[in-house]
Design a protein around this nucleic acid. Structure first.
Lengths: 129, 129
DNA sequence: GTTATATTTTACCAGTTAGTTAATTAACTT
DNA sequence: AAGTTAATTAACTAACTGGTAAAATATAAC
């Protein structure tokens, strides 16, 4: 997955207007005017947002008379989710390293008592979903 | 979850240098100099990137002599993942709506033959993980 | 063919961003 | 106290962003 693509996806997602547009589009294909309706900004501003989303590959456009309907293209979103997921795995790993570290600390302190009960909440951390 | 927080998280993730820093930090806490090493940019530029990440809550900083080590804070990342996940569910739903639509189309065409075999690949779309 | 509707393009502006170099702060080392 | 190392702040610049208003384009409807 190219970094440029991730750049484009994440920066498209960084704007609340654009996120709202995506959520609306998940309900189905629709016109620019209907997309624009909820927002207090001008039509050209919406056109610009749509161009950002299109360049990021998050939406595509059609033609129907004087309307240019927008439809969702979810693939890049999936890539972004995958990046975060991969990252989340790293994060899990660093917890594991912390576990291991704390365990060695504890066992060096508890040399006399052979039991090492471990478990400082390993199962608690936000689940694997 | 506040929109501002999502804005900050996604725009922090929109830069490849910052993503690389996060991935490095997932391997463990480290100094600014070590974080800067792989990149062809100046130290002040790295300081700025770290400030962006810190403002987004994605990292936090410590003190150890003249070093200010950075450590990962994964919670906002999780929120971003949750947003995308929620969105992905919408996306699934729109596939379901498409399913329903195509099914009505097919059944209106196939009025004579009562069988409606459905399944145009419903199980194929990227799984629920 | 004129008029109305939907959308985009153009030209502009203010604020932000990512980078630079030079100077500054903070802490350790001798 | 003087010097070294780590990192930040300050001041500046070029490019990008999100917005505007006004003009242009494209299609439909009369």
């Amino acid at each position: 997955m190219s970094p440029d693509r991730l750049d484009a996806t994440f920066s498209a997602l960084a704007d609340p207007t654009r996120r709202a547009i995506l959520v609306r589009l998940a309900l189905g294909e629709t016109s620019v005017a209907e997309l624009a309706a909820p927002f207090p900004i001008s039509a050209p501003a919406i056109t610009k947002h749509l161009k950002v989303l299109e360049n990021a590959g998050l939406i595509s456009r059609g033609r129907h008379a004087q309307w240019r309907p927008c439809r969702l293209e979810a693939a890049p979103l999936q890539e972004a989710a995958d990046f975060i997921e991969q990252y989340r795995q790293f994060w899990e790993q660093s917890f594991d390293r912390l576990d291991a570290y704390l365990q060695t600390l504890q066992s060096s302190q508890d040399q006399s008592k052979k039991e090492k009960k471990n478990g400082h909440g390993k199962t608690k951390r936000s689940g694997n979903r």
